[in-house]
Nucleic acid binder design. Structure first.
Length: 512
RNA sequence: GGUCCGUUCGUCUAGGGGUUAGGACGCAUCCCUUUCACGGAUGAAACACGGGUUCGAUUCCCGUACGGACUACCA
């Protein structure tokens, strides 16, 4: 059967979209594009108690920022909507009842206290895994143990109930994961998971099978944390009679902490000072803040490139991929099996690569925006010039301003270490001559003219330019390191240059 | 505890029965250079362990160890 590929990203609106979720979305997007299929987004909000306002908007904005927006979603619906499970609520009960009718599910009336008592009883009896299953259900209050008329009476009285799947006692459940191959689980280790909650909402397990089926999903690409419940899902497809159109599964490796072990979490972000969310997020309930890659200065294309390589690789030595190139190169077969430790250095490196590839004009525009906040105005030509000489040393576009402040603000202090090491009489003499020559110069101060004048100033005094170069830099910028000095001179202009040299000559003392 | 998944340089990974085990990030050294950076070159750095199978295993199989996920009327 050759169906159109339809994949989905199904986040829960319980907070900021985690980077692992973003990667899942990306892989789904890449696969859909690669196969000329459709990428859908479905909001899994069946747990009303965990709903967080703004979370859905966050998801939407994050995907838009990255340029991987879904083809069908709550805000851009296709023909299989609604795309929010809460809005699909009326659809689920009939499917649960269908299962009850077929004998694959049953009503259960146990209270939370009774369930807890059961678990304690089993734990006390040293039962390895205390769960609601083919053995224990015979001792609980459900439509399998209660007389038919009592079940009926309870249902009619409006007593709360759930619907549980009836897991067979002895059955081998197999699934062929696209990434992991055959996975086999014995049904005796599965429990009778709740399908319909007492509030009338389906659980994830029921909803995701019903929705994936109804939405024509062909491939389920999701995190590895779902692997243990995948056999349950296979069973559901079977009981519904949908096995022939059951999607193929691909369980992605987890994103791990950079140090030690375990899933990457917000704690790691706080601990190491790097983001794990695409964008800044303030939790509306707790007021807790989390930083985002976007606000830290990561660009969408570099972030995407970085993300794609967290668990996938093209099989050759290329590292830099545009979104289009990722689509072209992507395949599920090349996704790795093992968990991936998160390395922020690589993210930075990617950002540097992308930053350097940007045009001077584009980076100049970033710089101008930053300058505006500082109340400094500059022509776009000059901004582009500065971007040109600064971009080799920047990780983020914000570094253009942070690292290039001396272009706009004359130094008031000088790096002491450089002063004591480099500032001497020769430097003073050369700069003094340079200042005089500059004052008498009324041509355009280009990097070339700036340099030739400086060279003649050094020569006149019989001093080798190389000897005093760093002191010259110190005098004009206040520090011992930076981009090409003559370019800096040209950019700040003659008058500013002269006044800075003057200031330095008056304030810098030659140490004994 | 149980079930499932995993394990190649510090990190991301390529590879696959016979290789000098390749690349990238990071690190170190050198070169370039007016400094720093960029760039270039070089280097240190890995097949978890034990059994099989085999003429030969890092590669296949089985154990062990270690790690992880899951084990809710959460997704």
């Amino acid at each position: 059967m050759n169906r159109e590929v339809r994949v989905r990203f199904a986040p829960s609106p319980t907070g900021a979209l985690h980077i692992g979720g973003v990667r899942t979305a990306l892989y789904n997007y890449l696969y859909a594009r690669k196969t000329n299929g459709k990428f859908l987004l479905r909001i899994e909000d069946t747990d009303q108690t965990r709903f967080v306002p703004g979370a859905e908007e966050y998801i939407k904005e994050a995907l838009e920022w990255l340029g991987i927006s879904p083809d069908e979603s709550p805000w851009n619906p296709g023909e299989v909507g609604p795309y929010r499970q809460s809005e699909r609520k009326p659809m689920y009960m009939q499917y649960a009842l269908d299962l009850v009718e077929k004998g694959h599910a049953y009503y259960a009336f146990d209270t939370a206290e009774e369930l807890e008592a059961m678990r304690q009883r089993l734990t006390a009896a040293r039962v390895v895994s205390p769960q609601y299953n083919s053995i224990t259900r015979t001792q609980m209050k459900n439509s399998l143990t209660l007389p038919e008329d009592e079940v009926k009476a309870r249902l009619e009285s409006g007593e709360p109930y759930v619907i549980r799947i009836k897991i067979p006692r002895k059955e081998e459940v197999r699934l062929n994961d696209l990434i992991r191959g055959w996975v086999m689980v014995h049904s005796s280790t599965l429990d009778d998971k709740v399908l319909m909650k007492s509030d009338g909402m389906p659980t994830y397990h029921l909803a995701n099978i019903v929705d994936d089926h109804l939405m024509g999903i062909t491939h389920v690409i999701r995190g590895e944390e779902w692997l243990p419940s995948a056999p349950l899902h296979v069973l559901l497809y079977r009981y519904f009679g949908w096995e022939d159109t059951m999607p193929q599964f691909a369980h992605l490796p987890l994103l791990l902490k950079p140090d030690g072990n375990g899933k990457l979490s917000k704690r790691d972000a706080d601990k190491h000072g790097f983001p794990v969310f695409p964008m800044d997020w303030v939790d509306p309930n707790s007021g807790e803040k989390a930083m985002g890659f976007r606000e830290q200065g990561y660009m969408p294309d570099s972030f995407l490139n970085f993300l794609a390589f967290l668990g996938w690789n093209p099989g050759d030595h290329r590292e830099i991929f545009s979104l289009e190139e990722l689509v072209e190169a992507f395949s599920i077969e090349r996704i790795g099996k093992s968990g991936t430790k998160f390395d922020i250095n690589k993210a930075k490196w990617y950002n540097e690569q992308y930053l350097r590839a940007k045009s001077d004009e584009e980076l100049g525009a970033y710089l101008m925006a930053d300058l505006e906040k500082e109340g400094i105005s500059v022509s776009s030509e000059k901004a582009a010039q500065i971007a040109h000489i600064m971009k080799e040393r920047a990780t983020f576009s914000s570094d253009l301003w942070k690292e290039g402040q001396f272009m706009f603000v004359a130094p008031q202090t000088f790096d002491e270490a450089v002063v004591s090491k480099r500032w001497n009489n020769d430097a003073f003499t050369v700069l003094n001559t340079y200042k005089e020559k500059l004052s008498g110069f009324d041509g355009e101060l280009t990097p070339e003219t700036a340099k030739s004048i400086l060279e003649s100033a050094a020569e006149e005094n019989g001093i080798k330019l190389g000897k005093v170069m760093q002191a010259v830099r110190l005098a004009v910028t206040g520090v011992g390191a930076g981009p090409d000095l003559m370019a800096v001179f040209s950019i700040i202009g003659k008058d500013e240059l002269v006044s800075r040299i003057d200031f330095a000559l008056k304030n810098l003392k030659v140490s004994a």
